[in-house]
Design a protein around this nucleic acid. Structure first.
Lengths: 150, 150
DNA sequence: GTTCGTGCAAAGCGTTTGCACTCTG
DNA sequence: CAGAGTGCAAACGCTTTGCACGAAC
């Protein structure tokens, strides 16, 4: 994980940005919460626990910065706010989908390359050069289905 | 298309809502622009051309109303505002996906049931009961690719 | 000593809501 | 005249921005 920070530092430096302590904290919070899909405010609160004098604007600016370099990716799961997570690398980062439970809001991650043949079809049928795709599946998770049946 | 209005009127009436003239105009605008994906404000402007005394709030309320009954569906294509289009019926309305050109913003519609076997896999692998899904594919359309190559 | 990063507060923007008016039945 | 529908303007929630201060090279 130290390595990850160095890696990001490289990317930033390559674009004339610095890895400041606050940016590092934002990164750490994201790294330590890989499983969750934090909103900007949630990131802010977690960073604030370690660095009380951080500002919300800085968090937004940092998230924006990381987004621009595909270090993280933002998605709106339907609650009107952006949520951030690591892009799992800029090459294969786009094959990454979510199951969203409409009952409890849980988000289950799903890595699935089944869309590859769909991609091929689309490319030829529509003359469309795909750079990324995003699949959200809505429904009910096991737990919430269980409750329904009791 | 007259039939469509009657149909919607039925749905509304069944839930104790009325098909007022303004709601009808909103519906008409949506019907006449099926191919486009209008934002609330765009709908508002188009309705205003016919009924100058309409309010933006009414448009929002109407769109919300139609959404609730799955008459229309809203999607965010990444520009931070909701865009509305007809759900093609409440049964099969969810098999409806989009190609979004990141260059010119064009949205190409794509009806594709290739995700069905993916659905089956997900259902069994994750114990997840799917009610809907949404697939957005980002890339460059033919026109924009052409420009790039010239 | 520039330049970049930052905190704070204000502004922005799409959307929602409170309230009073209006229209319909 | 009761109740739903509506216009207007204010409020809202998330995000962005302007500005002045502060840190780093």
């Amino acid at each position: 994980m130290r390595g990850m920070i160095g890696e990001v530092e490289e990317i930033l430096r390559a674009h004339d940005y610095k890895m400041t302590p606050k940016r590092e904290h934002v990164l750490c919070v994201l790294l330590e919460n890989k499983k969750r899909h934090l909103s900007a405010e949630e990131v802010y609160n977690l960073v604030k626990q370690r660095v009380p004098d951080v500002g919300l604007a800085t968090v937004y600016r940092t998230l924006e910065l990381f987004s621009n370099f595909d270090i993280i990716r933002s998605t709106d799961f339907g609650d009107g706010r952006k949520r951030y997570e690591f892009g799992t690398g800029s090459n294969d980062g786009h094959r990454h989908h979510h199951l969203i439970c409409v009952e409890c809001g849980k988000i289950i991650e799903m890595n699935e390359d089944l869309l590859e043949d769909l991609e091929e079809r689309v490319t030829s049928a529509y003359d469309f050069t795909i750079s990324d795709h995003e699949l959200k599946i809505f429904g009910k998770c096991r737990d919430c289905m269980g409750q329904k049946n009791k």
